[in-house]
Design a protein around this nucleic acid. Structure first.
Length: 786
DNA sequence: GAGTTTGAAACT
DNA sequence: CAGTTTCAAACTC
């Protein structure tokens, strides 16, 4: 099912996600449409609140249009913060993990509640100044819900009640008086608003939020299911606000402690009846938080998914993770897509939709998630959420003029998502005030170039439509927010589907180093797995075992990258290829490496320093030619002295381009008419051709032998088996001769003496015979490889 | 694998 | 900008 992410995209204007920008509206909209079509008039007295809300629907049923059966699904949400990471690695994790039980309600417990008491079996009330009562029914009621079924009528301002056995999760007094939002959560075998006893028949599993660590608050097991979940946490929520931008989508604003004040829970009911919820965070300009954090959102309804997103360091940046879930009865599976963009404070909005695929553990590259792309362009804060297609892959995109590599997350699924993406952009640009480039109008000449081979690979221009892959449904461009003004002009060439969003202040541009996502995925998984007490699905530990530098197996194969061996540069200098390519060091041999998540600050400073020294430090050195490789040239030119520019010391030679007038090399032999260069090229070409011919010959031989098996009649047998000579047909003989000729040519190329050449040929002949004999001895059709 | 060579990056 | 130093990759043995 498609995730209607544009809604979220539209529904998340700046003022919603930006704490600083939120303008509380004391007057609710006269008509506050609700997804459920219900109306929850609130005649209760105004409840004191710490914050107001922009708009509050009376009742919003997340699955209002869903059938009772569809409503049977339940959610369990947990937000945890690994404080240990914060202390040790300056990284904080925020985990939102609805999981465990299929019948668990969405549980959100801002744990900054000063007190948490268990009023009755299965009922836990926690009180805080800004929190409201939470009822673990299959509803989330925001603001007043006096008449809501299952609501705790005894609630009081600042009280949050969690009733595991119920079917409602109620949050009251978070909005204006008389206003409420009821998030109807599906619950198996129970009606919305049904009593607690029914909930007992369907044990609830709670996972409690943990964000930050208030010393004055003890982790509390909420309900019996919490004990089983063993995921007790503390959420430093001091205020809870709700903002409904549209009838079907609203945002729960959780004002946590200062360091977590930017956390947002976004819940939406998309037209497809999907429940979308997720975390978003905004770093306000006043946010003192500078330490890197990782936000991981995970959900398990009948399925689970995880998204890890690093929070932003730069002010007014936004990271939103949204998870859409449905598939009430689909087999359990684990889906993970951590997106961590923490390093450079990039903007990321991620929306995920779990698919109805059979139970399986999906790797990071096959996860049925729909990553979104967000490009920060500068200006006021903006956020966009796009649905990310399932089975997304990561492709690298090289933005002209930028050495950084953008990542395009594409999906293997075919469909009309491309147009949909454009539509999203259009909608976003129409709805959202911040400027959003309609990518449908963008013409992108962005090649997808492996980062490591950037200097060597001729960029592949896109088609006129800018569409690289016809099968991709979404193009995602995720860029960290490192300011790279120099690439600004090139952003106009972003591919369709790219969303250009204004950044915050001077942090105009976000650049995603190559394999940023994949690398961060791996990192996030590691971090996730290390989260204390987190019920890590088995898939998490296995799905993110990416090869070098976060590359997928296929990527690694196509773009092998050497691990660096830096010792003194901390991998924060351009000496380090990883750093120079905008990648994290992973599986490298470096020591004292700072090019990782744990050293965001240092890395950001190093990037800035490099840019200060050379604003084009991260631009590709090899300029892209207009018509291919012939026009490629080193932008700066080499400065070789002794290598003659015919060794890999020379960047030009390494990039397989000839030196140009920009080079300052001495004794250069890397020019068109250079005999030395021609010799090298000839040898290289000869070697390549030789390998190809040899491969072809061997393949042919194998094919001939295989064919022989199929054609040989059983009449020619000896003792029940075919005689070896029956396999030496004309075709086999020819193929063998080709192998021998290839061997002879090879011996000649390497200038071997005649005796050696003869020996090589004979050895090859012997190998051919052995293959033939071996094939003859097999009963099945063999496949012989020389 | 250790040592050397090399040239870009960093520094002065 | 030029000279020097530092650094890590490329190269050799």
């Amino acid at each position: 099912m498609d995730v209607v992410s544009p809604e979220l995209n539209i529904l998340l204007p700046d003022e919603i996600m930006d704490t600083e920008a939120i303008v509380m509206d004391d007057d609710p909209p006269a008509e506050s449409p609700t997804a459920s079509g219900q109306s929850q008039p609130s005649d209760d007295a105004p409840i004191p609140m710490e914050t107001d809300v922009l708009a509050v629907p009376e009742i919003v049923s997340l699955c209002s249009d869903a059938t009772p059966t569809q409503r049977t699904q339940a959610l369990t949400t947990s937000i945890t913060t690994d404080s240990t990471l914060c202390s040790t690695t300056s990284a904080t994790q925020l985990l939102l993990t609805p999981s465990i039980a299929s019948s668990s309600p969405l549980t959100l417990r801002p744990a900054t509640a000063s007190t948490l008491t268990s009023t009755s079996p299965g009922v836990v009330s926690l009180t805080s100044g800004g929190l409201q009562k939470l009822s673990a029914n299959h509803q989330i009621i925001l603001n007043k819900v006096a008449s809501s079924p299952g609501a705790d009528t005894t609630r009081s301002p600042g009280t949050t009640t969690i009733t595991p056995g119920g079917q409602k999760f109620m949050v009251t007094a978070i909005g204006k008086s008389g206003q409420s939002i009821v998030l109807q959560l599906p619950h198996t075998g129970s009606k919305p608003g049904s009593g607690q006893g029914e909930a007992k028949a369907h044990p609830q599993h709670f996972k409690v939020l943990t964000i930050g660590g208030r010393t004055d608050l003890k982790p509390v097991m909420v309900g019996q299911a919490v004990s089983s979940a063993s995921q007790v946490s503390t959420l430093q929520a001091q205020q809870l606000k709700t903002v409904q931008v549209r009838p079907d989508i609203f945002v729960i604003l959780l004002d946590f402690s200062p360091q977590f004040r930017d956390i947002r829970l976004i819940v939406s009911l998309v037209p497809s009846q999907q429940l979308l919820y997720g975390l978003g965070r905004v770093l306000s300009t006043s946010s003192p938080v500078t330490s890197p954090r990782t936000i991981t959102l995970s959900e398990t309804l009948s399925s689970s998914s995880k998204i890890a997103i690093s929070p932003l360091k730069s002010p007014s940046k936004l990271t939103v993770v949204s998870v859409a879930s449905q598939v009430p009865n689909s087999p359990q599976k684990s889906v993970s897509l951590p997106l961590n963009m923490a390093h450079l404070g990039q903007q990321i909005l991620v929306q995920q939709s779990t698919a109805t695929s059979p139970a399986k553990v999906v790797s990071s590259h096959s996860t049925p998630m729909k990553p979104v792309q967000t490009v920060t362009v500068g200006g006021p804060q903006f956020k966009t959420i796009f649905p990310l297609s399932t089975s997304s892959n990561v492709q690298q995109i090289q933005v002209p003029g930028s050495r950084f590599h953008y990542v395009r997350l594409v999906t293997a699924t075919t469909g009309s998502s491309t147009g949909q993406a454009g539509s999203h952009c259009t909608n976003s640009s129409m709805t959202a005030k911040p400027m959003v480039v309609n990518t449908a109008q963008v013409r992108m000449s962005v090649p997808i170039i492996p980062a490591q081979t950037m200097k060597q690979v001729v960029p592949k221009p896109l088609t006129s439509s800018g569409q690289l892959l016809t099968t991709q449904t979404q193009q995602r461009l995720i860029m960290p927010a490192t300011p790279l003004p120099q690439i600004q002009p090139n952003l106009t060439n972003l591919p369709p589907g790219t969303v250009l969003a204004p950044g915050s202040g001077n942090m105009g541009y976000a650049v995603l180093p190559a394999h940023y996502v994949t690398q961060l995925q791996q990192s996030a998984y590691v971090t996730l797995a290390s989260s204390s007490g987190f019920p890590n699905p088995t898939g998490i530990q296995t799905q993110a075992r990416l090869p070098l530098n976060g590359l997928s197996t296929s990527d690694a194969a196509s773009r092998p990258r050497k691990p660096c061996n830096c010792n003194k540069s901390q991998c924060l200098k351009l000496y380090c290829d990883c750093f120079a390519n905008g990648e994290f060091c992973q599986n490298c041999n470096c020591t004292n490496c700072f090019n990782n998540l744990e050293h965001e600050t240092e890395r950001a400073k190093a990037i800035k320093a490099c840019l200060d020294r050379n604003p084009e430090a991260f631009k590709p050195k090899i300029g892209k030619g207009k018509e291919g490789e012939s026009d490629r040239r080193h932008s700066k030119g080499c400065n070789c002295k002794r290598s003659g520019c015919l060794k890999n010391y020379c960047e030009c030679y390494e990039a397989k381009i000839m030196c140009s007038s920009t080079c300052k090399c001495v004794g250069c032999k890397n020019f068109e008419e250079s005999p030395e260069r021609k010799t090298l090229m000839h040898l290289a070409d000869a070697a390549e051709v030789r390998v190809q011919q040899q491969t072809a010959a061997k393949t042919k031989l194998s094919s001939q032998i295989s064919d022989l098996f199929t054609r040989t009649t059983p009449s020619i047998t000896s003792g029940g088996g075919r005689m070896p000579f029956t396999f030496v047909t004309k075709e086999v003989a020819e193929a063998t001769c080709e192998c021998l000729l290839e061997q002879a040519e090879q011996a000649e190329l390497i200038q071997q003496p005649q005796a050696t050449a003869e020996r090589m040929i004979l050895e090859e002949f012997g190998r051919c015979l052995m293959r033939i004999i071996s094939s003859a001895g097999k009963t099945d059709c063999p496949s012989i490889n020389c």
